[in-house]
Simulated assay, not measured.
Amino acid sequence: MRLLILINSLDCLGENDAALSSAFRGLGWEVILGEINTIAADDYRYFTRGVLVTESYSPGSVAAGARQSYLLDECQLIWVLGSPQPRVYRDVWRMLWLASQQTRFVNSIEGLVFLNSKHAMGYLVPRENRACSYVSNDFSSLWERYQQDPSQSWVAKPPNSGCGQNVFLLPQNGPNVRAILQCLTGNTVAQSEMDYGGLGGFKADYAILQKFIPEVAQGEKRIVVTCGKVVAWHGRQGHPSDHRSNITQGGRAIQVDLNTNEVALAELIGQKLMAHGINFGAMDMAYPYIIEFDLGFPGGLWDAKLVSGVDRSHQVAELIIARFKQH
């Protein structure tokens, strides 16, 4: 059986690329690592540039071996663990969706395109487990909403970024709130003035204004779910000078336990994700709230291994194989 894992770069492997390729090889699968941004077609048969995996890797490694073309329809299973670059985004996703009509994907293209966003919180998460949010690309509407409740602290962020990018804590009556919301929504007023009435084109960006959740101060937990089952987790302790707990922003992975309520909530959402073809993903939780989703190439397995000493990647591989044997 052949698994193709589509990743961002063969020259610097991510944590999932390294761990999961080894796990599937250990279970007797042939594994190809392919670069997602090289997807192409030969008479509408889709292929990618890739490498046959013959050894175990660590995160950051270069995939050794000859780079050659591999046809997607000659693989029994395809796993997208990368993200197309903006310039080729639409072409890559469309070709992958067409390829998915005849080859099975671990995570559906529809799910990755439409659910891997903060917009999906209102659909995937029960109301009582998510913070109240407002989404707009109009600065004035978000500014008005902020002013309606001066005693409330807020978080403002883009709906389609990750790793803590441009996530701002907006305190009560904060002096920079107006400027932050203008920035996140594209600075349209200033841009229009500088472009002489908007000749530079449409500039507005979407932003989310979300009520701050005090539970976050107690720490978030990153939970990895596979086929609707919790398989790995770790805590995240934020940098003392930052409200964000992202590892990329100075946060630190710590060992924690999950209680039955946390497991039940994570698996409830995991089952809903499976209904849309998403069999592997991660979420950030500050119970009873879900803070974030990561469905593209979610971190968590590697850090959970570092803090607990237990490698869960083989359990992930076994669950995925069992899932697709049934279908």
Rank of each mutant, 00 (worst) to 15 (best):
L306M: 15
L273F: 07
E292L: 00
Y287E: 05
A190T: 11
A63L: 07
G270L: 03
A19T: 11
Q147R: 13
M194W: 12
H239W: 06
A286C: 12
N246R: 02
F297Y: 14
L268R: 10
G299R: 03
F105W: 13
V31S: 07
I247Y: 05
I291M: 06
H276S: 04
A156H: 06
P175L: 02
R145V: 13
D311S: 10
D91W: 11
A41N: 08
T54P: 05
T103C: 14
Q68A: 10
G162Y: 12
W302L: 12
E292G: 05
V92W: 09
G186T: 02
L52M: 04
I254E: 00
N176T: 01
P175Q: 00
Q68G: 09
E74Y: 12
R67N: 08
A204P: 02
K229A: 05
Y206V: 04
L52P: 01
G14I: 09
T260N: 14
A266M: 01
F47G: 07
N8A: 12
G250I: 04
G201W: 07
A99K: 10
K305F: 10
K272C: 01
I208V: 11
E110L: 10
S245V: 01
V231H: 00
V307F: 03
L6S: 10
I39T: 08
P86A: 02
L142N: 02
A156Q: 03
C132F: 13
R104P: 07
V177L: 02
L273D: 05
K305R: 15
L265D: 07
